[in-house]
Design a protein around this nucleic acid. Sequence first.
DNA 1: CAATAATGATTTATTGATAAATAAATGGAT
DNA 2: ATCCATTTATTTATCAATAAATCATTATTG
Lengths: 179, 179
Amino acid sequence: MTSKDDASLSRKEQILDAAAALFAEKGYYKTTTAEVARSVGVTQPYVFHFFTSKESLYLAVLERAHLRILDAFTTVNAPPEQLAERMGKAFVELLLSHRDEILLVMMSYTTPEPAVRARTRQEFDIIYERVKLRFEQAGLPDAADKASVFIGHGLLIAMSETLDLPHLCRWRDKPSTKF
Amino acid sequence: MTSKDDASLSRKEQILDAAAALFAEKGYYKTTTAEVARSVGVTQPYVFHFFTSKESLYLAVLERAHLRILDAFTTVNAPPEQLAERMGKAFVELLLSHRDEILLVMMSYTTPEPAVRARTRQEFDIIYERVKLRFEQAGLPDAADKASVFIGHGLLIAMSETLDLPHLCRWRDKPSTKF
DNA sequence: CAATAATGATTTATTGATAAATAAATGGAT
DNA sequence: ATCCATTTATTTATCAATAAATCATTATTG
């Protein structure tokens, strides 16, 4: 059930999965289309049968991850005083279930490829607005500020995971009071 | 006074400055040593007269920026209830005076080059510990948590600057209540 | 039912570009 | 004539991307 090269997945999905893992680990420039192909067990040119370019492959991975995050935040339902905490928990759960994709999203803002920047910009804007809206609708004061802090915390988690500096933030021990 | 290709600077310093600007704008992989050279007005191989590799050039830039940040946080002096705010202000001032370097540091955690990761890891650890220590010495409760939030906010600022999404955090308007 | 055509999946082979790094040469100032 | 700054010329490697060939499977016809 650990979703490893499942034969039930379409080639395209397998490629997306492998790409997510590699891009998250090594970043856009250091992962080659050949590696993605090898990781799936196909040849490099075959990747281009499904995606017109390396960039479009990356964007496809990003899109999937973005939708997952947005969905998680939208789905959460909780009373106002627990909302932020529950949304934080949803984020952490996503981090545990789809680590690669989440870290990829949180790191994408540093990828200077214009198309990637543009998409990341747009997606973070959407996520921020969604978080803010939820806080507003719950009647929380300073919703915009709370949304900012929320995302800042997400970035911190991503950094501490990426650099393996767990003591920078301890969401692992007490998953309650955070966020 | 805007420190542009000052002839009074040594070639090595000029190269460091140009590299900082380019690395911050285009990231490690997309900036070439040839561009750095051209930006200074020398030839590409000459860069290797000062730095043994592209990587060591990047690390040198990173080191300089790291020291600047650390120094800024160490220098700030304020009563406990204003400490975080003043340190935040110091960070923002640094962002205004040395934008390239600061953004570079805040983005470096996503550069998968092993040596860069290791250094970034080490430097963020040092910065975090310094911030935490200052909060502790000021007698502030939950110093570790406050240090985390502080750095999270720094990351958010870097992202909102990089993606040009100013409304994600408004440190530009009211520089007081933040941090 | 066998032979064959057509279709889709996938591979082999190749190209063209870019960039880091090295080595050797030049030129001017002591 | 030597030393430092700097350049020209070249090497080597890596990748994304394309084109053409092959293999397998299903559908079609005689």
